[in-house]
């Protein structure tokens, strides 16, 4: 078979790749530009001044930060175990850990709602009100965001050779000391990435919160709920203003991850 390589065929190939890539890039930028051109900074500021929206901003910031912290506390040990140890049933546990990522968001919310209707759930509710209250917002965000953090932390630990911990153990460390003194400091960039991703993921969480927490103003309203409520009453301008706020937050998160985050973990 004759060799068909030529500079022209290379150019056609590269042009094809570029056109496909550029189309998707155009779609993303066009969406953002459409949002930005729909309103002015002044009108956006005005919309953000309403007490309801201020409450949802405050609740979003606080709940996302708490969710990110809790996610890290769970993701670090789970990621470490999954990356360092082999044990029976590991593939099954691996699949279970990914369930929140692939489950439809509304189903996550419904499952949480049903969970808190069981005997265990009701027992918890006897001590702390969860369903349709602020804790339900955090729990709904955590259920999904933690799965992303676990994936990130697992990738982080898989990129750190266990050899350093092994040397530390021969030098006098227990396994726990080797983890705290060697593995964890080396995983700090991954931890930042995992926390930031959990924060960003929580900020956009809507389905589980709508089902499990409701959409009550001055109570369980977070930013995606605001977009939904404002749209449902026809205040498109306010919905766009809040959406732009979330776009800005997402851009900041992306920058943090790109600058400080662990390479190759996401």
């Amino acid at each position: 078979m004759p060799i068909t390589a030529s500079k022209t065929s290379d150019r056609v190939f590269l042009a094809g790749l570029t056109v496909i890539g550029a189309l998707y890039l155009f779609l993303i930028l066009a969406m953002l530009l459409a949002d930005a051109s729909f309103t002015t900074p002044w009108r956006m500021w005005e919309a953000l001044g309403s007490p309801e929206i201020r409450y949802s901003i405050k609740l979003s910031l606080i709940s996302c930060s708490i969710t990110a912290l809790i996610s890290i506390w769970f993701a670090v040990p789970i990621g470490y175990i999954m990356s360092r140890f082999e044990f029976p049933g590991k593939p099954v546990i691996d699949a279970i850990l990914d369930i929140p990522i692939v489950l439809p968001p509304l189903v996550v919310g419904l499952s949480l709602l049903i969970l808190f209707q069981t005997r265990v759930g009701k027992w918890i509710e006897d001590y702390i009100a969860v369903t349709y209250e602020i804790p339900s917002v955090i729990l709904a965000q955590f259920s999904v965001a933690c799965a992303f953090s676990v994936r990130t932390m697992r990738g982080t630990f898989e990129h750190i050779s266990p050899r350093g911990e092994q040397v530390a153990m021969t030098l006098g460390c227990s396994r726990a000391q080797a983890f705290w003194r060697i593995a964890l400091p080396e995983a700090r960039r991954g931890m930042l990435t995992a926390a930031t991703l959990a924060w960003a993921r929580s900020l956009g969480e809507f389905g589980p919160i709508l089902v499990f927490s409701g959409a009550t103003r001055f109570k369980t309203e977070v930013l995606p709920t605001t977009v939904f409520l404002e749209l449902s009453v026809g205040r498109l301008e306010s919905a766009v203003a809040v959406s732009l706020l979330m776009v800005i937050a997402a851009a900041i998160v992306l920058m943090i991850v790109r600058i400080f985050g662990a390479p190759k973990t996401i």
Binding site: S161, G164, Q166, V167, T170, E186
Partner: peptide, 13 residues
């Protein structure tokens, strides 16, 4: 035991 592994495994932090 004093262990010197092939990749040295120096503590990066």
């Amino acid at each position: 035991v004093g262990y010197v592994p092939q990749d040295r495994a120096l503590f990066q932090t």
